[in-house]
Design a protein around this nucleic acid. Sequence first.
DNA 1: TAAGATTGATGAGTCAATCTTC
DNA 2: GAAGATTGACTCATCAATCTTA
Lengths: 164, 164
Amino acid sequence: MRDGDRLKKNRRSASSSVARSAWPAFLTAHAVLVSEVERRLKEAELPELAWYDVLWALERAPKRRLRMHELADAVVVSRSNLTRLADRLESNGLVSRERCDDDRRSSFAVLTDAGSEMRKRMWPVYRAAIEELFDDHLSADEQASLRAVLQRLLEAAAKAAAPQ
Amino acid sequence: MRDGDRLKKNRRSASSSVARSAWPAFLTAHAVLVSEVERRLKEAELPELAWYDVLWALERAPKRRLRMHELADAVVVSRSNLTRLADRLESNGLVSRERCDDDRRSSFAVLTDAGSEMRKRMWPVYRAAIEELFDDHLSADEQASLRAVLQRLLEAAAKAAAPQ
DNA sequence: TAAGATTGATGAGTCAATCTTC
DNA sequence: GAAGATTGACTCATCAATCTTA
């Protein structure tokens, strides 16, 4: 059997003081959904999700470029990891680097046309997966309240992580 | 909740955009929350979250043991990755392996006393993080409906991933 | 001295191939 | 042949140290 066949079950069943917490379900749902999305991208011979994130962040940015640390924040990835990720994207021609004139310590990651094309090729597959695995099972109300809840958690975490 | 929210009911994100989808927030929230949990475990000089998952799965299991493939399903990890993970746990004395008599292809991962101790040391730190980052920001109702939603997604994904 | 980014070394994850047992 | 688990080779992630510019 290949390792691709996996992540299909949920055996979590909380049993103590977090018995009513949605946290275990949150972790499991994320793992299962993301791995299924990744499976579909791979099946379509497309790059992984992290690449999409970077390409999309650059696409939205002014002049299709971001400083490396801005990009790292945008895609929620560590600095050194992003350097390596950008290396791979660059060697595949999807991103290029440019010097930053006002602050020469910094460098820009710039989306290339090929990068933009790749994102457009990935999107239908990614969108279909999101719809089929996520959106189709939630009402508009549920989407809205889920977003609100997640947003709240995100803001709280930002405070908790950087108190000073 | 505002009254306007009640008017837009039952609208599945029918044809179009994922503009209202909670999916991006779902990905970001997971990344931020998990990395903060990992940061706290590391700060307390404790093993990473994946270790906790394995130790806890074994703790709950009959005779504190599971076959490798059962364990892989329980913690939502690929087979070969679990072999490596179990290797590390074993070399740290937290888990041991035993032959399985009824099916000698299979092997058990068994929780050691040291493993049980380690889980007990991790739990207060982990629990505090879950509470502070997650539970404290959700009402009981929100926890319940969040769990229900995530559970639904999980079941749908199981079907989508294994259609036959 | 600190911020921005990168690198080298090392640890962890993944895929395909393998071994054993059913 | 197929299931259960592991291994080898490779890719990717992470940490501390480094280089450059502010």
